[in-house]
């Protein structure tokens, strides 16, 4: 017995699939090899769908502009910011971040010499491919200074909000 659903299915058979085959159409046999190949440029992957303008991705932090006002720590719902008293800057944990963008709204920023308006220290990038096996890996922690400097200059501190 033909139903409306059946006609719908036949119509869909004639259309192209709706799925965006990102990053590859079928799961590869060996994932690590595929990633290596992509890195070497021997293989190309399908692009993801572009994200809109207001997209909130991984947080970008410019320590130069940070005045150490701790407002972002006050508003952050997930306690993703850690205060480092030695350098009076923050450390951001991407794994704890809930991508609400409140810290960006509240950040006062700093006016460098020669500028008319202050520029915020924090901004939302469009980066969203953040999966990792280790939640403390380097690319999931935004450090205020380069890793060598910040970690050599200070003792391990447990001071946090």
């Amino acid at each position: 017995m033909p139903t409306k659903a059946m006609f719908l299915m036949i119509r869909q058979l004639l259309q192209r699939p709706f799925t965006n085959p990102f990053p590859v159409k079928y799961a590869p046999k060996n994932v690590t090899k595929t990633i290596e190949k992509v890195k070497l440029g021997q293989m190309s992957i399908n692009n993801p769908i572009p994200v809109p303008d207001g997209f909130r991705g991984k947080l970008k932090y410019d320590p130069e502009r940070c005045i150490g006002c701790r407002l972002c720590i006050t508003v952050c719902p997930a306690n993703a910011m850690e205060w480092i008293p030695e350098v009076r800057k923050i450390r951001h944990y991407v794994t704890r971040c809930m991508f609400c963008g409140l810290c960006v709204d509240v950040c006062p920023g700093k006016k460098l010499p020669g500028e008319t308006a202050p520029v915020k220290a924090l901004s939302m990038s469009k980066e969203f491919l953040l999966a990792d096996y280790d939640k403390y890996s380097d690319n999931l922690i935004v450090e205020p200074t380069s890793k060598e400097q910040s970690l050599n200059n200070q003792e391990p501190s447990s001071d946090q909000k």
């Binding site: 299915m9 869909q12 058979l13 699939p17 709706f18 799925t19 085959p21 159409k25 079928y26």
Partner: peptide
């Protein structure tokens, strides 16, 4: 495969 295409999916190989 055909069932997947009927539902607008790519489906398995």
């Amino acid at each position: 495969k055909i069932s997947a295409r009927m539902t607008s999916r790519i489906g398995p190989p």
